[in-house]
Design a protein around this nucleic acid. Sequence first.
DNA 1: TACAAGCATGAAAATACTTCTGGTGGAAGA
DNA 2: TCTTCCACCAGAAGTATTTTCATGCTTGTA
Lengths: 225, 225
Amino acid sequence: MKILLVEDEPYVAGVINKGLTEKGYSVSVAPDGNTGLKMALAHSFDVLILDIMLPGMNGMELCRKLRENKINSPILFLTALGTTENIVAGLDAGADDYLVKPFKFAELEARLKSLNRRKNLVVQEEEDVQYLDTLRIDFRSKLVEQEGKPVALTSTEFRLLEFFVRNKNRVLSRMEILEKVWGIDFNMGTNVVDVYVNYLRKKISSNPDKKFIQTVVGMGYMLKV
Amino acid sequence: MKILLVEDEPYVAGVINKGLTEKGYSVSVAPDGNTGLKMALAHSFDVLILDIMLPGMNGMELCRKLRENKINSPILFLTALGTTENIVAGLDAGADDYLVKPFKFAELEARLKSLNRRKNLVVQEEEDVQYLDTLRIDFRSKLVEQEGKPVALTSTEFRLLEFFVRNKNRVLSRMEILEKVWGIDFNMGTNVVDVYVNYLRKKISSNPDKKFIQTVVGMGYMLKV
DNA sequence: TACAAGCATGAAAATACTTCTGGTGGAAGA
DNA sequence: TCTTCCACCAGAAGTATTTTCATGCTTGTA
């Protein structure tokens, strides 16, 4: 999980940075609002942690600017300003959570995890690379690797795999597959789908018994993850 | 914004209910965990507010059960238990926010707005899902789950279940079922419907005595909810 | 209690799926 | 241009699963 921390006090920034890094998060620190904005626009972070009292642009302003610039990553305010007015103002500025200093590190981590969890639930953005167990699929370069070793797929096989991956955990009927992968509309009476599913199974599975592509008798096939 | 409040103390429930209603929110109150679960499964709420100490199932358990049943609405814990351990436990159980009593009403409202805002940010891919108690039926992916565990149905069984669900609380004659599910027009003298109703009953019921599909002697079957 | 209606079960029949064989046609190279 | 190769697809034989039916048993109703 990539985190951006905007905090001017070096000591506080250091403590949080150290703690989160030790827990395995990747943390970037910005010492003021303008730097924070630039960094958020340049890279994509999973969560942003903002102090409110910052030199230059303050945290509230920064938060509003981020939202204006369509930065939709969850924002958590971490600040000493603990009055209800402050909290309400912070949340109304577009933040997702508000934690008052002094705080317990465990609570910060729990809230970060919660924010990130929801984000993943929601924005299932189409990644260029996906992993299914030890299978790596790069949609842009159209390269597939099983346990680090390249798998040679023909173009039809790749399109079929892509369709399965983009619709995983759904039963896909042969009809649907024919339409989307082959562009055929109502030519039943062909078993190409079966044949190609069989090809794929042979090529992409590391061991024969764990089947990525399950057959659902009478309905179609499903890529189960 | 539709809110479900699960709170056993009538006084607290009343105050929150009144406050939120005055602000224009639509609030439903459940007095205990089981009722809360049922209501959440039956209707869709924008945000759920849970107390932790509840008669019967406690809030943590309820939260986990909700997530198991793929209820993804934001959950806010509202409780007097304010230690860091409690907060971390609550968030780890799948909640999105945690507010400690006593609280300022303005903060509650700000946090609710924040939770709802994030939810709406999401591009809701339209789902075609129905719940019958703890049974989850996804018509698009054709996946059925009982208490979070997948149920394997054959295609005929699924079509039959779908027909029942889409015509719940109606008595369906064998004739009608044969026509709509099997496409058979006047072949009486078969007991397939009986056989399949029994297959379904065995597969989808969590405990044997609560029968989803009731038999109406001399008339047919009915899915009662 | 008697009778009809519904239920449970096992085995046969029907259907669906896997896999192999081989033919076609287009592309790459000689 | 001709040959070779290989992706692609149809057919068919071999399996597996699902569906149906017939049967006896249980339950509900008059």
